[in-house]
Design a protein around this nucleic acid. Sequence first.
DNA 1: AGGAATATATTTAGCTTGTATCTAAATTAC
DNA 2: GTAATTTAGATACAAGCTAAATATATTCCT
Lengths: 392, 392
Amino acid sequence: MMPHAAAATPQLLRRVNAQAVLRHIRGADVATGTELMALTGLTRASVIAVCEDLIGRGWIVELDQPRTVPANPRKGRPARRFAFNREAGFVLGLDIGAATTTAAVADLRGTVIGRSSESFRAADIPAQERIGVIDLACRQALEAAGTDPGTVLAVGAGIAAPVDRDGNVLVTQRFWSLFDVGLRSALKDLHGWTVLLENDANLAALGERWRGSGAGVDDLVVLLAGERLGAGVMESGRLLHGRGGAAGEMGYLDMVEGVGSSDGIAALARQWSAAGGGPSAGGPASAPRVFEDAAAGDAAALAILDRISERMARVIASIASLINPEQVVIGGAVAESAGALLPGITARLPRFTATPPRVTVSPLGDKIVTVGAIRHALDFVEANALELELAG
Amino acid sequence: MMPHAAAATPQLLRRVNAQAVLRHIRGADVATGTELMALTGLTRASVIAVCEDLIGRGWIVELDQPRTVPANPRKGRPARRFAFNREAGFVLGLDIGAATTTAAVADLRGTVIGRSSESFRAADIPAQERIGVIDLACRQALEAAGTDPGTVLAVGAGIAAPVDRDGNVLVTQRFWSLFDVGLRSALKDLHGWTVLLENDANLAALGERWRGSGAGVDDLVVLLAGERLGAGVMESGRLLHGRGGAAGEMGYLDMVEGVGSSDGIAALARQWSAAGGGPSAGGPASAPRVFEDAAAGDAAALAILDRISERMARVIASIASLINPEQVVIGGAVAESAGALLPGITARLPRFTATPPRVTVSPLGDKIVTVGAIRHALDFVEANALELELAG
DNA sequence: AGGAATATATTTAGCTTGTATCTAAATTAC
DNA sequence: GTAATTTAGATACAAGCTAAATATATTCCT
């Protein structure tokens, strides 16, 4: 007949209230019953019952009374003090690139406590070997963190391919399509992990909103603009995927200039530098070199940066017209040097769009995807905390 | 300290379950207790209790036992039959254009039972007079529907300006900025109505997904492409607004051609026709005339349509790259004739984007905005049903 | 040091809403 | 007319919340 929704039973109340209490305890350093009463609107009896429940499940711990006299001594019976158990489990954040995979382990507050990278032997290795390399990076990161696979509650994984809302890679145009499905089931089979696959630019957006220059911005676009160009779009605090997960895949967006439209800043700098000349025309036309030369005042390099700024301004303006974000963050491999592009971009925007966003450069460097992957995994854990089993 | 969320009390359960039951009854023509048990997962006792509740509040009615023998006679004690009370209240859908306002009255199933249009005396009349004209259209439509202002549960209103998520017009660049705020409070003061302001293209998207060619499509874009060009964007079944409500305002999007980028199909046809010539170059260069001429095989007119197709294909491709919708619907004043553009657009799309959406033409004609406004109002009523007072 | 004041903790009674189970009612089929 | 079948209604009970009364631990003041 219909996929009938589960009936709301009294147990649902406890779930909802426990979730609210847990959220507040997670946000605070330490919480007392009275604070939680004010925050949740529950009575003391309910708050305490919920806390006992959460302690039993391992999500929070009760702290001992401080032996030392507290800084500002308060009258009355001392309150029981509850704290989030940030080591109730851990999450993994993966940045799976074409050449290298980086794994980062974080506790439930998001503090990274282990990290490891492994490179693939070649670009065309079979899926099985690729999974082996990824798994190795994960295990090394866990070891560095001093924990083991059994404590992992969720894995966020970013790849440079369209991923739809359900974590499936639909587009069959690349080798990923074969590979990714293998990854999810492989890590499930190996360790029992829940793997949340996402597009790398989308994860970059999550990361930037969490701990980058877009902190707290609900309408945010992150341009992952190193070698390739991809956008992670958040509207009203939610990631946009589109029908097949290809939202933000700016594949053919640029219909004006002759360059490949999926080229990022680094690729453009290299190409135009190789074609154009300048003092470093003789040497290898690397992107860092172009930025260096421009910083030193070289006219040809400056002209290239200007051209890149123009191009980025057009891309950002298209985004501004369609999505109207509050802020656009430029991230990826060239983020450190991309600051030099900002004035040129910002100055051009009003010519191209009536709603120019704030444009900034990511402070997260090459960690942008793993940070976002961790956030993605934490979001899952926080949403499903009361359904997850904690391993001792 | 914090905006503390309301605690989940046992009453919440009833609210949740009543909402679920009401949703199912609204969807079905008539429902029995046994059906609702299966659909909601509740026990019979709870289902009956909820239904009694809903009857008391006026949202549903209990039907008499049919005197006639039913078509397929069933064994056992006959079930009580519950039906949605589609006349528990009504909603208004407004299309507030620059020259004319149209008001439509619908019952709670969305059937339009009254309609009225009123034009403004001039473009620059004061806000007070404008509100008066709108109010007149509303009252006439209500009279035509045989009901009165007291039965209106919500009003959806579409305007051709950016409106943010909260229904506020932020951009101050047009006379709307003064006008709209007046509308909400004016109709609240006059009749006690809750007015939900939205961008007209956004409402078009709601309408198209509800009763147009995008029925049931979660990732849908509607181009309102008459005189002006605006997009209503839905992703995962939700409308996109962006920071200031300007998402889909394609203001300066086109950086390629010399035409004003906010021009819609009709405007383009007129401009290019006036500039270009053709058999009807002597007469008034109206958009319908261009489509007529093209249908008759006129080469110049065909060339203009081709040029429009190219332009629309580029716009749609930009959208496809950023949002990846499943479908794009072209609506607005020219929707009837826009079918002639479809082959030209569809053929060009693969050149511009790797993820071409299905492109269709709206069947809703000039009712597209009022239909969407009704849907918008119904969404509000359905979400807030159990908090709303029913009059009469 | 001892009592008052204060803040927190715990207990008890009662309300709402749900489930589960049993009995009653109304209809069809033979 | 009786059995089978389906729905309705009633009773018992469990979960979770509130509210109010009572108990406990600490600081402040004399």
